[in-house]
């Protein structure tokens, strides 16, 4: 299953250990993570489920291309890194 990993900067605010989730897209993966930890949602996406302006996600070491729909595909061995963008300070 794809693995979702979070920046330590986010772990400073709330628990978000690496999680293995069954998903075909970044959005599906995040929905499953947020289902287990609802407060985490607002740290990563806005209320329209768009990636926050100063958050970036890498899948297999490439930044995702669909920041609004999060439709980028993930595979069984994908690593999904949720990181802070340096544009945010």
């Amino acid at each position: 299953m794809p693995r979702v990993l979070f920046t330590p900067h986010l772990q400073r605010h709330l628990a978000c250990p690496p999680q293995d989730v069954d998903a075909g897209t970044v959005r599906e993966a995040l929905e499953k993570v947020f289902a287990a930890s609802e407060p985490l949602r607002g740290y990563v996406v806005d209320e329209r489920f768009r990636l926050r302006r100063h958050v970036v996600i890498f899948v297999n070491n490439r930044p995702i291309t669909d920041r609004e729909g999060l439709t980028d595909a993930v595979g069984p061995t994908s690593e999904i890194y949720v990181l802070q963008a340096l544009s945010g300070g």
Binding site: H9, H13, G42, Y43, R52, H54, V55, Q84, G88, G89
Partner: peptide
């Protein structure tokens, strides 16, 4: 008002 993670 977290720069990366929004308003809390």
């Amino acid at each position: 008002n977290l720069g990366h993670f929004g308003t809390k």
